[in-house]
Amino acid sequence: MTEIKFTLNGKKQILNTDPNRRLLDVIREDFQLTGPKEGCGEGECGACAVLLNGQIVNSCSVPLANVDGQDIVTIEGFSSTKQYHVIKEAFAKAGGVQCGFCTPGMIIATQSLLSENPHPDDYEIKIGLSGNLCRCTGYNLIIKAVKTASKDGDGLW
């Protein structure tokens, strides 16, 4: 047992727990935040993506030990921001959501990308989404959604 402190969705948290736990399990089980999903458990599919200090990481591949003192935002926390609403509308308008299992991860990837590069071209968008697997859409409508978000949310990032 180790004391681990971190910020989760803007709130300071202190846990006395096993640092070898995966961040994903802690988020889902201790905080009942089930937006991040487990698709592969090995950092390949991106369904478990969260923002760590504002940047996308796969929470299934992050040991809790590594987040001590860090800032974590899940889709639940991100959904109260202006940026989220622009991205959400863009995904809806483009038709970028099918089964939805990869979607929260895609939203996190979009935010991480746009926060670094507010006006990405197609190639940069593809790279930004390259760690998020989607089996339903063939990605094109998601890429379109990211482009729309970048345009509609001009100035937000």
Binding site: V97, G100, P104
Partner: peptide, 9 residues
């Protein structure tokens, strides 16, 4: 079902 799927709920 866009809203619930996008927001992770």
């Amino acid at each position: 079902d866009n809203d619930e799927k996008i927001s992770g709920s």
